[in-house]
Design a protein around this nucleic acid. Structure first.
Ligand SMILES: NC(=O)c1ccc[n+]([C@@H]2O[C@H](COP(=O)([O-])OP(=O)(O)OC[C@H]3O[C@@H](n4cnc5c(N)ncnc54)[C@H](O)[C@@H]3O)[C@@H](O)[C@H]2O)c1
Ligand SMILES: NC(=O)c1ccc[n+]([C@@H]2O[C@H](COP(=O)([O-])OP(=O)(O)OC[C@H]3O[C@@H](n4cnc5c(N)ncnc54)[C@H](O)[C@@H]3O)[C@@H](O)[C@H]2O)c1
Lengths: 192, 192
DNA sequence: AGACGCTTGTGAAAAGCTTCACAAGAAAGT
DNA sequence: ACTTTCTTGTGAAGCTTTTCACAAGCGTCT
């Protein structure tokens, strides 16, 4: 988005402009940014270059995150080939699966590794994140093993609530719930 | 989740129990449920059966929703084979794609239809929801066409903000953002 | 029937978040 | 140098959500 503004020839951007694009208000943008220091110029706005740098640092995007994909099934393969992860700094350094038929299969540059190697791969490759794309029944165990091996965050596709220590963030992707959210909004609109 | 409680032999469940499982507080659960009427029994809790029925109605899950999948690519094929959608009342009644090489391909019971038929399929099959699994560049146009043909809600996988009328709910699935949320939380924990 | 143990439903208080409003600062023109 | 025009940063006000606290209700045991 900031790139678009630069392409339009802007070197600075006001909270008002950011708000319009981000479906929010100018005051909100300023409050949010002020939490991370004050780097806007009064009367002018924010330097797009500086804003990009700051956001990169604030969001922790100023480095490449090493990710291990656990579960080489349907959703796993779609995710593996999703180019945006790499583009945005998430490097899938390994894929593991428990199915002997899949182990050894070549996916692009990577070979599917056996699930038993999960801990050693996390340590050797210094992976910080895992993507959990295994059946719900396996999710809790695999998550625990990952955390014990040193993983710092989990993106969970299994439709279960995973229990891990408080300081390990977990983001859940529950597509059924997203559809249910749509159903709810549609239903509510009809019966107020 | 309510099924689990039933399997454990519970016919009623207290707000306290619900809260523990749902990572929230008992007061919160009661407030939420009280918005839809008061159907708990004091001293006892909520009847699991009744709660299930009520939630089904509240969430609009008491009917089957007809969904059309737009884009038979990597993520589209993973979603199509995801059994939980059907199980939870979301029936994928058609798949469309613009790629001539894919049109006509058989996916289970369905045949991939040409993208031009989108409007007529929505009308004929009375589809209420679409899942947008097309490249970002095509998403806005396809969304507009869907809404004009009568779709009431959109689950959008393309990494763009879609503009549709206010009364059409859109749920966005942005996996890169989920990873960035993890990165942010991890980074923030390190540098307070 | 009455006492007791639990749990809901709901005002009221607290906390959190958003919007308002404006002094203060930065550039550009006069 | 002064005025005008923008726009930030931030207390204060306003609003929403969450938590607290407790009377009222239900079932059970004696
Ligand atoms: N397919 C989808 O569109 C979709 C969408 C949302 C969520 N999900 C969820 O994602 C998970 C995977 O779904 P899927 O459709 O890819 O299923 P899948 O059966 O195609 O793939 C699961 C893979 O995990 C592997 N696996 C099982 N146990 C393992 C373990 N202990 N360690 C490592 N690998 C193991 C299996 O061998 C298999 O290859 C499920 O929990 C599902 O509910 C899937
Ligand atoms: N692969 C993933 O894991 C993943 C994850 C999140 C989001 N996404 C997003 O989902 C979308 C699809 O991703 P993908 O990996 O499946 O891509 P893909 O290229 O594999 O599939 C896209 C499909 O859409 C079809 N298509 C293109 N234009 C169309 C149109 N106008 N009407 C109908 N069909 C059309 C193409 O023929 C293709 O089959 C992209 O926007 C992507 O950013 C993908």
């Amino acid at each position: 988005m900031l790139e678009l503004i630069q392409d339009d020839g802007g070197v600075t951007v006001s909270s008002e402009q950011l708000a319009r694009r981000g479906h929010t208000t100018a005051a909100q943008v300023r409050k949010d940014l002020s939490h991370f220091g004050s780097f806007g110029k009064r009367g002018l706005g924010y330097s797009v270059d500086e804003l990009k740098d700051r956001l990169r640092i604030i969001l922790g995007l100023d480095r490449v995150w090493r990710v291990i994909l656990i579960g080489a099934g349907r959703i796993g393969s779609a995710l593996f080939e999703y180019p945006d992860f790499k583009k945005r700094g998430y490097d899938c350094v390994a894929v593991v699966d428990s199915d002997p038929a899949k182990i050894g299969e070549k996916w692009g540059e990577r070979v599917i590794r056996p699930a038993e190697e999960l801990e050693s791969l996390i340590k050797e490759l210094r992976a910080t994140l895992v993507i959990l794309a295994v059946p719900a029944s396996a999710a809790q165990l695999v998550a625990e093993r990952s955390v014990n091996a040193g993983v710092r965050g989990i993106l969970n596709f299994a439709p279960v609530q995973i229990q891990v220590p408080e300081d390990i963030p977990v983001e859940n992707v529950n597509l059924v719930m997203e559809l249910e959210a749509l159903s709810f909004q549609i239903t509510r609109a009809l019966t107020p």
